[in-house]
């Protein structure tokens, strides 16, 4: 159920155009390519075609032109082999369903089971391991509606882990989630990256992107830019992706600078702001980790 070792993990979209039955063209000629061991952010405003691209990657919509391939296989094959795991937004399911945490995570293993979906020891082990990794093992017998918002999110992450997907898609994983859960999920995503998986996170929370994503795909009806965060995440590109939808607060012209020199504090309630330094220099909260990753990747290349 895993890609052959001689076939490296890749995710590629080539000229993907999606037209809905009502004639609406949601995405035009989207092209990008990603490799394993990556956390990539998919960034765009609402209505930019972000969800459509997600759906195309998951095989929910068939592109009217172009194609998506995963390790050079079409999405359909990748699906059957259990390569693609999906972490949905919490609103997408009915939380009053009479299933417990363990049941939901076990659903991630269906692809590995026989026709009757009777779990084997390997399935139970994978589920137990996933539940322990997200810290929900003690809550495994809870009905899912009795969980907190952050715990609900972690159930889905655990399901993706149990599925052992090579490509993990997360749809707005940090909305309605407390800071602690966010940090736990980010830590987990870093572990998964270290294991060589490809993680694609759709988000409109710009501030958290440089912190844990090493690549970015910027979209607005098509792919505007794709590449390492430090190259793609520039004020120019973001302006193109967001147009007027982005609130711009230029600190260099603020009174704060005049009074306090370099001492700048930015407080926001909900979403983390993106802070750009001089010349578009990205502000990282955890700089060393990022630089280590960049260095490692350079070393790997040469």
């Amino acid at each position: 159920m895993t890609p052959a070792p001689d076939r490296p993990l890749t995710l590629a979209a080539r000229g993907v155009t999606v037209t809905y039955p009502n004639g609406h063209v949601a995405l035009t000629d989207a092209t990008f390519a990603l490799g394993g061991g990556t956390i990539c952010a998919l960034v765009g405003v609402n209505g930019s075609g972000k969800s459509t691209l997600f759906k195309a990657l998951m095989g929910f919509v068939v592109p009217s032109a172009g194609a998506v391939t995963i390790s050079d296989e079409p999405v359909r094959t990748a699906q059957r082999r259990g390569w693609v795991a999906y972490v949905p937004q919490a609103e997408e399911v009915d939380w009053t369903f009479p299933v417990n945490v363990h049941d939901v995570v076990m659903m991630g293993r269906y692809g590995y089971m026989n026709f009757l979906r009777i779990p084997r020891a390997a399935d139970r082990d994978a589920v137990a391991d996933a539940l322990r990794r997200v810290g929900l093992w003690d809550l495994r017998d809870r009905q899912i509606g009795e969980l907190s918002g952050g715990q609900k999110k972690r159930v889905f992450v655990a399901r993706a882990l149990a599925q052992q997907g090579r490509v993990i898609l997360l749809d707005e994983p940090f909305t309605g989630v407390d800071v602690k859960t966010e940090e736990a999920i980010v830590a987990l995503l870093r572990e998964l990256r270290a294991e060589g998986r490809l993680i694609l996170v759709s988000t409109h929370n710009l501030g958290s992107v440089p912190e844990f994503c090493d690549q970015v795909v910027l979209i607005n009806r098509t792919v505007l830019a794709c590449g390492p965060t430090s190259e793609v995440f520039t004020a120019d590109n973001l302006q193109r992706a967001f147009g007027g939808a982005l609130r711009h607060f230029d600190l260099s012209r603020s009174t704060v600078e005049e009074h306090d020199g370099r001492q700048v504090t930015v407080l926001t309630d909900d979403e983390r702001p993106l802070v750009l330094g001089q010349g578009g220099h990205l502000e990282y909260r955890d700089r060393s980790a990022h630089e280590k990753l960049v260095a490692d990747r350079e070393a790997g290349k040469t």
Binding site: Y20, N46, G49
Partner: peptide, 11 residues
């Protein structure tokens, strides 16, 4: 059909 509002973005 033509008079109908443009379809909402399904995204």
């Amino acid at each position: 059909r033509r008079r109908a509002a443009p379809p909402a973005d399904p995204a």
